[in-house]
Write a protein that binds this DNA or RNA. Structure first.
Length: 566
RNA sequence: GGCGACGUAGCUCAGUGGUAGAGCAAAGGACUCAUAAGCCUUCGGUCACUGGUUCGAAUCCAGUCGUCGUCACCA
């Protein structure tokens, strides 16, 4: 058995069906990485789920006049459908409303409390007498003291961008009841704080040791945060939606979402273990012991907005809990813009994943999103580019290489893999490429350079087309059928290699090629290594691997705003 | 405003001290097995700008401009 690999993927809000920016930023890179690791024989546990406790969900629930759980239960099943169509191979995709997650969150809370990392402190918070509840900053509106915009929020004025404290707002009022007659009060309340300064040194030591290979934006961001000095951070709120606080006197408060969401990685691992019928199995990935100081390599696939939570707060929580494995790498991606502008679901400037899937399917979407993955800087989504990459590269380069050879073999060699004769230098060169692509692409994927890993396979596909043109088996066959058969055999070996190396990227297409080459079983369970396609192996009737698409109509908007999809 | 990442051919991007690269787009050519796909050739860049270090800078340093993120109640 190989190494234990823990693939943790950022938890999407359960208030939409996910947009392609979320897919390209964390879901897809995690899936590609996990699939590769399974194929090289590593023992992968890949988990995530829907985050139910985010503020946007309570805002939406308040607007609709329903319980937050109604919003969650509306979207969670739709999200599961998206994973199905996108071929995301989870070990478990759960949600933060499970009893298990509540229990694990409370356990972490109590452990940190007992270990001395939490403390209580008073705070002054805005309170609405009409609704009889404390208000979060963004539930308060008022006049901005800076630009005098009338609907500034308690945390920030959207008009001038000024960061605000609720007390600074002029004529503040409650966003829920809208009452301007009963003025907002500022009442005393009490909360638990996570004493991050106590963990500063241990965090620094850990980061210094582990981050040498991390992406520069992640390392610099985290290091800078530590350099400025950590401050205690409140982890409870005056809310009624979230994980209850397991301490007497705090019945009307909840653990705040940023604290419980990251615990999801641990709670999901435990839930997975229970579902396996091996409730202790999660320890194999998580539990640090003297004999096993690094039970697994854990990777956190997130967007750049999430670096502080995964490179600072969550590691601090794990250190405070003791004996749980810390991140091995946090390969945060930059953002994918939409039509040249920042993606924003509130502005409608997003492409919903189900829309993109309905139009072009999983292969084309996965391929395009990988090609344009924002690994080093922001990228940009457009349907036009998606169609172009599908037509030029999937259809034209890879699909064509497979189809031209398989149809030719089918017509002229009795639908079996021809028996090769002597190999020429050119044959050996292509066979060498077919062997090397495993190491070249694998090395890139292992280093989480996923675009590069895909490029290695596509370079091999280009080499196939070049070789076919140079060898011209349709010409050679007229005088030397044995020689032309050797050429076809050679190309089929190269296709056999690509059906494996492309599996993490476009699993459905790779499976189709697997079958077109006469194999049974699942290519995703095939080891990541060269395997000969044996001479004499029967080949089924060839079919094109991919479908060509018409370019999208020019007038068509780049971002769909279908209410139904959301 | 502070901090960080990024800014390279029309487009998407690689390249972190030694004579500027790939794919696509564009132009031309040879071929015909293939979803008129594929192959070959050509065209195309004062590497955001200014200054500095160096024998030598896309690459290191400083500043400027632009994009994005973050700054502790968005996650």
């Amino acid at each position: 058995m190989g190494e234990k690999i823990l693939v943790c993927i950022a938890w999407p809000y359960a208030k939409s069906v996910t947009h392609v920016g979320q897919i390209v930023g964390s879901i897809l890179p995690g899936d590609i990485f996990a699939r590769y690791n399974r194929m090289i024989g590593n023992d992968v546990l890949m988990v995530s789920g829907s985050d139910a406790h985010g503020t946007p969900i309570t805002v939406e629930a308040d607007q609709e006049g329903v319980e937050p759980d109604v919003i969650v239960e509306r979207y969670h099943p739709k999200i599961l459908e998206v994973w199905e169509k996108l071929d995301i191979q989870w070990d478990l995709y759960t949600k933060t409303t499970t009893p298990n997650h509540y229990a694990v969150t409370q356990d972490v809370f109590l452990k940190l409390l007992n270990n001395g990392y939490l403390f209580k402190d008073g705070a002054i918070a805005p309170f609405c007498p009409t609704d009889n509840r404390f208000l979060q900053d963004r539930y308060i509106l008022g006049e901005c003291p800076n630009c005098h915009y009338g609907k500034a929020r308690g945390d920030q004025c959207e008009e001038c961008g000024h960061l605000l404290e609720p007390q600074q707002l002029m004529n503040p009022y409650c966003r829920i009841c809208g009452s301007k007659t009963s003025s907002i009060e500022f009442r005393e309340t009490e909360h638990f704080y996570f004493n991050l300064p106590l963990l500063q040194d241990k965090l620094q030591t850990w980061l210094n040791a582990v981050s040498a290979q991390w992406r520069p934006n992640v390392v610099n961001f985290a290091m800078n945060w530590l350099k400025e000095g950590l401050k205690p951070r409140a982890i409870t709120r005056d809310l009624n939606w979230g994980v209850p606080i397991p301490v007497a006197g705090f019945e009307n408060k909840r653990i705040y979402v940023w604290f419980d969401a990251v615990i999801g990685y641990l709670s999901a691992s435990k839930e997975w273990a229970q579902l396996q019928g091996r409730p202790e199995a999660w320890r194999e990935w998580w539990e640090v012991t003297p004999e096993n100081p690094r039970p697994s390599r854990s990777y956190y696939f997130i967007g750049k907005d999430n670096i502080s939570f995964h490179a600072i707060f969550w590691p601090a929580m794990l250190i405070g809990y003791e004996n749980l494995v810390l991140a091995y790498d946090v390969p945060a991606n930059e953002f994918m813009q939409m039509g040249g502008h920042k993606a924003s679901s509130s502005d409608g400037n997003v492409v919903w994943t189900p829309d993109a899937l309905a139009r072009y399917g999983g292969d084309a979407l996965r391929y395009y999103l990988t090609i344009s993955m924002p690994e080093t800087h922001d990228s940009n989504f457009s349907y036009e580019e998606l169609v172009r990459f599908n037509n030029d590269e999937l259809v034209g380069v890879f699909g064509n290489a497979a189809h031209r050879v398989l149809t030719f073999t089918h017509k002229n060699y009795g639908a079996t893999v021809p028996t090769p004769g002597e190999f020429t230098a050119e044959d050996k060169a292509l066979l060498e490429i077919s062997h090397n692509v495993f190491e070249l692409s694998g090395k890139a994927i292992a280093a989480v350079k996923l675009r590069e890993g895909l490029a290695e396979s596509m370079n091999a596909a280009r080499a196939i087309n070049k070789y076919i043109d140079e060898q011209a088996p349709w010409k050679v066959m007229k005088t030397d059928k044995q020689r032309a058969g050797t050429v076809l055999y050679t190309v089929i070996q190269a296709l056999g290699a690509l059906r494996i190396t492309l599996t993490p990227y476009i699993p459905a297409a790779a499976q189709r090629l697997h079958e077109l080459l006469g194999f049974s079983g699942l290519v995703k369970d095939t080891p990541w290594q060269f395997a000969e396609v044996l001479a004499g192996q029967a080949l089924p009737e060839p079919k094109p691997l991919f479908t060509k698409f018409d370019p999208p109509a020019a007038a068509e908007p780049e971002t769909a705003k279908t209410e139904a999809a959301k």
